[in-house]
Amino acid sequence: MIDLDEALSALEGDEELLKDCLKLLAEDLPGRIRQLRTALDNGNLKETGTVAHTIKGSVAVVGATELKKTALAVEAAARNEDPEKARACITSLEQQWNDLQAFLRERQLL
């Protein structure tokens, strides 16, 4: 779900910085997921891929490896012009994000 050790290592062990990054992600990601859905609903696979690429980078910073893999899958589906696969991956991305938020709240990181 998330590699906290990797994230802390990337941030030179700064737990407060990690919390700040997670807070920013929590503020940004729901809107990005909405952008994905809107772009896909409008048949704009290029934008879908671009937004997925942005999400991939954002979640990688905090060590959210599963979210990164799923964002990569959305990006690939958009590039391969497979809207149904992209839609399924977006649904998975949303569920993973909900699960991650619960995990982070339990650990008082969000």
Results as ranks from 00 to 15, higher is better:
5 D>P: 00
34 R>T: 14
76 A>M: 11
10 A>N: 05
43 G>A: 09
43 G>I: 05
4 L>M: 14
39 A>K: 02
9 S>R: 12
44 N>V: 02
110 L>C: 08
87 R>N: 09
63 G>H: 02
107 R>Q: 12
15 E>I: 14
92 S>R: 13
95 Q>H: 13
54 T>P: 01
108 Q>M: 10
23 K>W: 11
38 T>F: 08
92 S>N: 13
83 P>V: 06
87 R>T: 07
94 E>I: 12
57 G>A: 10
32 R>V: 02
2 I>K: 03
52 A>G: 00
72 L>A: 15
90 I>F: 09
28 D>V: 11
34 R>A: 15
29 L>W: 01
77 A>P: 01
61 V>G: 00
4 L>R: 14
23 K>I: 12
107 R>C: 06
62 V>H: 04
17 L>W: 05
62 V>I: 15
61 V>W: 02
80 N>V: 05
15 E>T: 14
20 D>A: 09
15 E>A: 15
1 M>S: 13
28 D>K: 07
80 N>S: 15
3 D>F: 09
21 C>G: 01
72 L>T: 08
1 M>N: 10
54 T>G: 11
45 L>M: 09
45 L>C: 03
77 A>N: 03
76 A>T: 13
10 A>I: 02
60 A>Q: 07
110 L>G: 11
10 A>R: 07
40 L>R: 04
79 R>Y: 11
94 E>H: 12
21 C>S: 05
19 K>H: 08
57 G>N: 06
35 Q>S: 07
93 L>I: 10
55 I>R: 01
39 A>T: 01
14 D>N: 15
71 A>W: 06
49 G>L: 04
76 A>C: 03
75 E>H: 09
65 T>E: 05
31 G>W: 03
11 L>M: 14
97 W>L: 14
70 T>M: 10
46 K>H: 09
99 D>I: 11
75 E>D: 10
108 Q>E: 15
41 D>W: 06
76 A>F: 07
17 L>H: 06
23 K>P: 00
103 F>G: 03
58 S>A: 13
54 T>R: 06
106 E>V: 08
75 E>C: 08
48 T>V: 09
23 K>L: 14
98 N>L: 14
46 K>P: 01
64 A>W: 05
108 Q>S: 15
31 G>P: 00
12 E>R: 12
10 A>E: 01
99 D>F: 10
32 R>T: 04
87 R>Y: 07
88 A>D: 10
31 G>D: 10
88 A>Q: 12
14 D>F: 03
66 E>P: 00
57 G>Q: 05
100 L>Q: 03
96 Q>E: 15
78 A>M: 07
10 A>Q: 03
46 K>M: 07
13 G>H: 03
90 I>K: 02
70 T>W: 01
69 K>F: 08
110 L>A: 06
16 E>R: 11
103 F>P: 00
38 T>Q: 12
23 K>F: 14
82 D>L: 03
30 P>N: 04
93 L>N: 07
64 A>Y: 05
58 S>T: 04
16 E>P: 00
14 D>R: 09
92 S>Q: 14
30 P>I: 03
27 E>A: 15
97 W>Q: 10
63 G>N: 03
105 R>Q: 15
93 L>P: 02
35 Q>W: 01
2 I>W: 04
103 F>D: 06
100 L>D: 02
2 I>F: 12
63 G>S: 04
73 A>H: 04
46 K>V: 13
58 S>C: 04
93 L>S: 09
90 I>E: 04
68 K>Y: 13
66 E>W: 04
21 C>P: 00
38 T>L: 12
77 A>D: 00
